[in-house]
Design a protein around this nucleic acid. Structure first.
Lengths: 245, 245
DNA sequence: CGCTTTTGTTGAACGCGTTCAAAACGGCGC
DNA sequence: GCGCCGTTTTGAACGCGTTCAACAAAAGCG
């Protein structure tokens, strides 16, 4: 019964599309889907590689042929929510012009998209905190994701009707990215129902951030800002080689 | 040969000291010492519970009688550096009166004391980031350590010759603790030789922090400060039940 | 001293993530 | 058809952290 499947796929018009589906793509997808489903159903720790393989109808070794480790399976999660967040943010950014509304919308979208995964957010960040993990925000492997996230914050700023000084515009996206990581860190440990505390923190801190930003437009505070931006710039491209390729 | 040891210990004068040495204390210490030594010699991942037990001359199960898990063995590390830091800080605080010198000294002491453990700082923080881990700074088990750390920052402030408003004095220690965690987070990922980047970040950011503090003494910025402190106060005792017992 | 209870100790066994040599498959030239 | 070679798949095996029923040693007690 199962053996017939192999030719059931639409035969690719020769050479038309550079078919990556070397047949393994199917298996890969199957394993990944099964893994994500089981992670959600049972939690990360409780889901075993043997379980995933069995449910996916393959041998354990096969899962390791496509994914270097169990952790690498979570990375798919990370990327999935990341893309959901990008999509949700684009809606907000197309609609809103005010800096506050834009930032607030993007941040709210973030919390909304990651909400379903709060149960094993701990594991996700546990591994993310490990410098050796591929999930580590500073790692080589997550560079594209981080870049996109920073770009998103850049658009929050540049697409708004608020005009800022050039130097602030240049560095603010990075600062906002760090800020948003801080909020997520809080969210992870937040045990309040519906993560309401995280939402409250986010809303209040967004206000503060914007107040800070406008404060720093004052010439009086310019030297302070200079020092801050100088420090951040100095240290970038530093913690990890990957930061500035 | 080994059997003779049992009575070699000085017999405790009956009832004089509430001897906690129910004989197990020796074993416990032996296991812990061996573990810490092996962690340093071989690294955390490479050190096995079997290896620890063997070198300590006990059975594996015995190690688990004294320590709930391998992670709990690291916690001893955490506490050890913590106490070293407290000691080093006390020296600084006894010597210096200026707020900047005090904060700078305490922060420098922190980086200095944790320096030897940079190689497996990753593991330490990997597990520390997990909400379920005992090493998690917000967890019940690390409450005393966190409390002492916050108290330390309180003394940095109150023992200095700089006078601050009451509300700032009340909340600043908590903010400084969070700040210092941020620096450590950077340090973990810092691959620069001698962690020099972390030291530079620390020095520059201390300056900024102090500038911020003095800025907020201006009446003009008072509402901003109010909002900030209000937010922090609102959210404390929230992420984890343990925060305010 | 003998007894019970508490404390300490053992090592086999379990389930896990991961590895790897070997096998099966699939397309391609002949 | 046959042989070849890279891709895919297998499952037994390894080493690990951890558990647990059983046992031993020490402490308390009459």
């Amino acid at each position: 019964m199962e053996d017939v499947v192999k030719t059931a796929e639409a035969p690719v018009p020769a050479g038309a599309v550079k078919t990556k589906t070397r047949k393994g793509e199917q298996t890969r997808a199957q394993i990944l889907d099964t893994a994500l489903r089981l992670f959600l159903e049972r939690g990360y720790e409780e889901t075993t590689m043997r379980g995933i393989a069995e449910e996916a109808g393959v041998a354990v070794g096969n899962a390791y042929y496509y994914f270097k480790s169990k952790e690498h399976l979570i990375q798919a999660f990370y990327e999935r929510t990341h893309h959901e967040h990008l999509a949700a943010s684009r809606e907000v950014l197309a609609r809103e012009r005010g800096l506050r509304e834009r930032l607030l919308g993007v941040m709210r979208a973030k919390l909304d998209t990651i909400a379903p995964y709060h149960q094993f957010a701990g594991i996700l960040f546990k591994t993310a905190a490990d410098p050796k993990s591929p999930l580590n925000p500073f790692s080589e492997e997550s560079l594209p994701v981080r870049q996109q996230a920073t770009d998103l914050f850049a658009e929050v700023v540049t697409g708004s009707d608020t005009r800022l000084t050039a130097e602030l515009t240049a560095e603010l996206p990075n600062l906002l990215w760090i800020y948003h990581m801080g909020i997520i860190l809080y969210w992870i440990h937040d045990k309040s129902p519906g993560s309401e505390k995280s939402y409250r923190l986010m809303e209040r801190s967004v206000k503060l951030v914007l107040r800070l930003v406008s404060l720093f437009q004052f010439p009086l505070l310019r030297p302070f800002l200079r020092e801050l931006l100088g420090m951040v710039a100095d240290l970038r491209g530093g913690t990890q080689e990957g930061l500035r390729p």
